[in-house]
Nucleic acid binder design. Structure first.
Length: 744
DNA sequence: AACTGTAAACTTTTT
DNA sequence: GTTTACAGTT
């Protein structure tokens, strides 16, 4: 597995050379998949340095830590070969960069530089508390949906004041109130969420001339990768840094924009020419990665998107193997077909680390994992975030967070009684009240706890002991002794795991999952130790364990799934299509090409979302260098229910001279063990069907087409013409009576 | 206060 | 099929 194409060795195309040698002024590189984008970016950075730009004046922003790491390594390699060095060069993710800015200047905008970064679960707790604080019913106001509104506001640079000013209806006004309460909670806890990292940095650039000057002066050259996936707030940050020198280079591909749902604003890349009207534009259309049939298939698919600039994608590589589309009976068979292909290709000498299986939703990984395990094929699931979401890890991290940020009440509440130490819900509520009235953090409020205030003797003792332990950790984390001690971060983490009682708590039972939790805690300690070894710091200014802990917690908060992809591993990678962006493999399998899965059901009725699904599929296809296998099933079990499926429209769109279609199961060959229920029989004239909205009706007429068959159904409420594919009609036994109250 | 079992909701994708 | 929330029991 590799990022970027090395295949082209040292010869660059004219277009690539133009991009590499461009120095000053805005530059837009429109880089199709496999067009040597990473090569161009790395060589361009190296070229800037070779031409005398000090490395520390260059800022390169990527999407994942893994991409940043890879880019940094490749730049350093190029520099090494030229006898140059890149010390001080900043290659970072957008979020990590903003976190660093706020570590330096955060006191000017959020009142602290020692903030905690809240993850999704922490955000949910804060949002719940905010909803409660507004006296709103949290069954009507779901934390998740409220948060998504707040998040998309923040991604558009809309702060609380603006939001409330613009709120006109009851709904928006209520959300505005929750937004404000949520912000108050975060500020009170010295915490930021993911979106705050961007929003607060952008605001800082607006409001604080000194910060703006400092950043503008330092970063004379700005480079942004995956520009099609940046949101408006990110644009504002970049624009403000580059405003004066205008040395901004953005690289991206509108056809690979797959994060609109997360606030990515495709107009950032589409309007770049207008924003920077003297921009040089370099299109890279030649694909160096994939063989001819694969490129042709991808090109064919993406042409179905209407909202796009036509861009030719071509290759001069040989045609190679045809992509195979394979239809299987169920997901077990699908997984088996994929492992079979993996084994076959391994026999041909393809390395396992050069193979990947991609899917639309994480839930699909389970069956695939089973198949890989039974076949004994090494595999890695790219799910970097999952580890840190485990309860025992979250608990350990909460202890660590409280250590560096005593105001973090969300962390406090999570661990004050884990492991159980006799402090129940009532005591915690009372403590919360107490903290509120005194304007203290919950941890600090413990000093005000007493029997006179209505706490039980047991809880008072427990709480005081808890506070003392936390305090001791803080003191030791700052101590001079451990300041220079090697392994101090890992030691600190280990100590907290032990002294918090977590270790003992999970050692008590011999239960299998407790054993696993213990192992995970061990793994957290090794992760800390690994982090410690890797981190770079100025020699004259070694960090205290507490500082190290800050960086570690920040690192942990900003990992992405794709970061878990280990190029050294001799294993097949399993991951979502989203996580696969920017990667490439010799062999790629994409599972679940079915209507409702890819494209996902939530995109079926929205053209814009449908186009994003198509781009996602396009991204998947273009990850493959030589071998591509696309699979689907006739029936799939989801949420414990087995359902019939329909082949993805994308298959139809791709099929043609460049792909090879196979049906492993004949359409009528449905296994006897699982006889068809009435619902699975075909709808014909006279069939009685049920529609979600219109109720039960009788089919009067069917017009069959390869695409978009229509049915005319006589419902009680009238005659309707429906597109069979979309209507999701449920077939009922022929003699069912029709009518509004008819029950199957 | 702590633990146990059952009901309900739930998954798109993620920094 | 999995996770979370809540009610009921000790």
């Amino acid at each position: 597995m590799n990022m970027g194409t090395d295949a082209q060795a040292n010869t660059l195309t004219t277009a690539q050379i133009e991009a590499v040698e461009h120095m000053n002024g805005p530059l837009l590189v429109l880089a199709g998949p496999g067009s040597g984008k990473t090569t161009v970016v790395t060589k361009r950075i190296a070229n800037l340095i070779a031409k005398g730009v000090p490395p520390w004046q260059i800022l390169a922003l990527t999407f994942t830590n893994k991409a940043a790491k890879e880019m940094r390594e490749r730049v350093f390699n190029v520099l090494d070969s030229q006898g140059l060095h890149g010390r001080g060069l900043t290659v970072s993710t957008f979020h990590a960069f903003c976190a660093r800015v706020l570590r330096d200047w955060g006191d000017r905008i959020i009142g602290t530089t020692t903030f905690t970064i809240y993850d999704t679960a922490d955000q949910r707790s804060a949002a719940k508390a905010a909803i409660r604080a507004c006296n709103l019913n949290d069954s009507n106001w779901k934390p998740a949906s409220v948060l998504s509104v707040i998040s998309s506001a923040k991604n558009k640079l809309i702060d609380v004041d603006t939001f409330q000013n613009e709120a006109s209806d009851f709904y928006a006004k209520s959300i505005g109130k929750i937004y404000r309460a949520y912000e108050n909670i975060l500020r009170g806890n010295d915490a930021v969420d993911f979106d705050d990292l961007l929003l607060k940095t952008a605001q800082l650039l607006f409001r604080d001339e000194e910060v703006k000057q400092s950043l503008q002066d330092r970063y004379q050259y700005l480079m942004i990768d995956e520009y099609q996936d940046t949101n408006h707030t990110q644009f504002v940050i970049a624009d403000n840094i580059a405003k004066n020198h205008r040395n901004i280079c953005v690289v991206g591909d509108p056809d690979q924009s797959v994060y609109a749902w997360r606030g990515a604003d495709i107009s950032n890349i589409l309007d770049f020419e207008e924003q920077y009207n003297d921009a040089t534009i370099v299109p890279l259309g030649r694909n160096f990665r994939s063989t001819g049939h694969i490129v042709a298939t991808a090109a064919k698919l993406i042409e179905y998107n209407s909202q796009r600039k036509d861009k030719k994608l071509y290759t001069e590589l040989e045609d190679g193997h045809m992509p195979t589309i394979l239809s299987l009976e169920g997901e077990r068979e699908e997984a088996e077909a994929i492992t079979n292909e993996v084994l076959r290709l391994r026999g041909e000498g393809v390395l396992l680390k050069e193979m990947a299986v991609l899917y639309r939703v994480n839930a699909l990984s389970r069956v695939l994992e089973d198949a890989f395990r039974t076949e004994g094929i090494p595999y890695v699931v790219a799910r970097g975030t999952a580890f840190y979401a485990r309860q025992e890890i979250k608990q350990a991290l909460s202890y660590l967070r409280l250590l560096v940020n005593p105001k973090d009440d969300v962390a406090f509440i999570r661990i004050i009684n884990t492991p159980t130490r006799g402090i129940g819900a009532t005591s915690i509520n009372k403590l919360e009240q107490l903290a509120q009235t005194y304007g203290l953090s919950m941890l600090d409020a413990i000093s005000e706890v007493s029997k006179e205030r209505g706490f039980t003797a047991r809880s008072v003792t427990s709480m005081k002991k808890f506070a003392t332990t936390c305090h001791q950790w803080q003191v030791d984390g700052r101590s001079e002794e451990s300041l220079t001690a090697a392994g101090s971060l890992a030691d600190l983490v280990e100590r907290v795991v032990r002294e918090s009682g977590l270790e003992q708590f999970y050692s008590k039972n011999a239960a299998e999952d407790d054993l696993e939790r213990l192992e995970n805690l061990e793994e957290l300690i090794s992760a800390a130790s690994e982090f410690e070894e890797r981190i770079e710091f100025e020699e004259d200014n070694p960090p205290t364990p507490l500082h190290m802990l800050f960086s570690f917690l920040e690192h942990v908060a900003l990992v992405s799934d794709a970061d878990a992809v280990d190029p050294e591993n001799g294993a097949v990678t399993l991951m979502t299509l989203h996580a696969a962006k920017g990667l490439e493999f010799d062999f790629v399998a994409i599972a679940g090409l079915e209507e409702g899965l890819l494209p996902h059901e939530r995109s079926l009725f929205d053209d814009t979302q449908m186009e994003e699904e198509r781009r996602l599929c396009y991204v998947g296809i273009t990850r493959a260098r030589k071998h591509l296998l696309l699979t689907n099933t006739r029936r799939r079990t989801q949420r414990g229910m087995s359902n019939r499926t329909m082949g993805s429209r994308f298959i139809r769109e791709m099929s043609g001279t460049s792909v090879h279609e196979e049906v492993a199961i004949e359409p009528w060959d449905i296994p006897d063990a699982d006889p068809p229920s009435p619902c699975e029989q075909e709808i014909t004239t006279g069939s009685v069907v049920r529609h979600k909205r219109f109720g039960v009706g009788k089919v009067q007429r069917i017009i069959r087409r390869t695409r978009g068959s229509t049915v005319t159904v006589h419902f009680d409420g009238g005659v309707k013409h429906l597109v069979l594919e979309y209507a999701k009609l449920e077939l009922l036994p022929p003699n069912t009576s029709t009518g509004p109250n008819a029950i199957y």
